[in-house]
Write a protein that binds this DNA or RNA. Structure first.
Lengths: 255, 255
DNA sequence: TGGTCTAGCCTGTATATACAACTTGGTGAG
DNA sequence: CTCACCAAGTTGTATATACAGGCTAGACCA
């Protein structure tokens, strides 16, 4: 915590980000114009301009000269979410996503899970075990733990139609993520759920996601090696006009 | 191509990026101060400030109040390179990197390679086959093709001490990369080179890199699944002060 | 009714100016 | 010689102002 007052342009940014995070401003909603901020916040237009311009660079809002400033579509901003939501990826390929819920329960965190989520042993967590299908073929086994007090309504949720990552990001913006990718030999249970051949390796993504400074969910995502791959594209920072192209986007391809 | 003149702040950015790319300004070199730009370019200080501030956000330069503006360490800007260079990763862990050159030849591009590199069949390419060791244990089999006219001195290079990616980025900044990560079952040759168990899967990274708008190198990087993983960290755009934390950094962990 | 035009709002950029905070090098006092 | 201090240069922020250009709704005309 710094004691120094934040600069005004940052206060404006925080204000608007707060209204977006809280749901007060939703995607496509109109954000106050520069002149409205000038009057409401008693700042100069250049200061309001800087705040809105940086929010544009960071992907929170989009601006159209002559019309105004509007909250971005969430997916445009949160690459982390884009990575998360396998349903969207499948849909983007024009395929059909279905999901089978194998487990959906409340447990006490222990061992590795408690450690990964930075909670004490025995704290309540939800455990989800789902299989995601693309056009009827199993493509991902999702083994996820969620800190219970972050998502108290979790047990009421029907995860066949809203993926856990979409559900979690609706509760609160997922702000940071850490992931590990490895090749592994799945055990028999995983192999059976994903209809994998005996000698087929799996691609495992282990991902831990933070919200408001604390880890809230820990997921192991198993994929059949013959049917799944991660692709990434790296562009240099700055050259294109939009910063949304500056960040790695990871999406999987099939076929 | 837009016919409209670029805005002045963008011209300033392009100017400075050009001086960095050309080597005229090297890491830690001092960039002209705002007031120097004001005099030299006949712009207002706010315009120079915007140019330098955005270059800071994009990782090209670092600014210190009272001292000046300095070209960033290259590694801080070019995450693509950071991903490339396995020798650096190993060294960062305090381990010893060694390298064995299995093949180092000039070939005619054909089939998949020609297609990936966007060159006609039969065009000259260099082929490299290297094994990278970490503390004496093989950790990566690098199977790389390089467009010959991009790196004409390639055959003279000793890749035991300078990795191909370091060599290539020294020739010209690698500006764009595309990669695919998959789990695979390596063939016997790969398995033998990497000292892998019979049933051990491999993590394969296939990477294609662009410079000045054309693909210049195509690499298949095989890793033993039990000894290698890719880790990534995603932070939200904007919240921290440094943009270097906003971009994915991929590095591998061992043990 | 249907089309055109314009006033008004909005963003995008640029300039001139001002003050605060930080860093460095030199100056002067002890 | 050493320490304290100050001046100059630098970045960081903020304001007031100006003009160009995109967009839209409503006025206006045929």
């Amino acid at each position: 915590m710094t004691l120094a007052a934040k600069p005004m342009y940052q206060q404006l940014k925080d204000l608007i980000i707060g209204r977006i995070s809280s749901g007060d401003l939703r995607p496509a909603d109109r954000v106050p114009s520069e002149n409205e901020l000038v009057e409401a916040m008693s700042v100069s237009r250049m200061t309001a301009n800087r705040a809105l311009r940086e929010l544009t660079d960071e992907g929170y809002v989009e601006r159209v000269a002559g019309r105004g400033t509007f909250v971005s579509d969430f997916r445009a901003r949160s690459h982390v979410l884009e990575v998360h939501n396998i349903a969207d990826e499948i849909q983007r390929r024009g395929h059909v996503h279905t999901c089978q819920v194998l487990r959906h329960s409340r447990q006490h965190a222990r061992g590795e899970i408690a450690k990964a989520l930075h909670v004490a042993q025995g704290i309540d967590v939800f455990h989800l075990l789902l299989v995601h299908f693309e056009n009827g073929t199993p493509i991902q086994l999702e083994d996820r733990h969620i800190v219970a007090d972050f998502a108290p309504e979790c047990l009421e949720q029907d995860f066949r139609h809203v993926t856990p990552s979409a559900y979690l990001s609706a509760i609160s913006p997922l702000q940071e993520a850490e992931q590990v990718v490895r090749a592994a030999q799945p055990n028999a249970a995983v192999r059976q759920r994903l209809l994998m051949a005996d000698d087929e390796p799996s691609l495992v993504v282990i991902r831990r996601t933070w919200s408001h400074g604390r880890p809230v969910t820990f997921a192991r995502l198993h994929h059949p090696g013959s049917r799944y791959e991660l692709t990434g594209h790296y562009a240099p920072p700055g050259t294109p006009k939009s910063t949304t192209e500056n960040v790695v986007e990871l999406e999987k391809l099939q076929r």
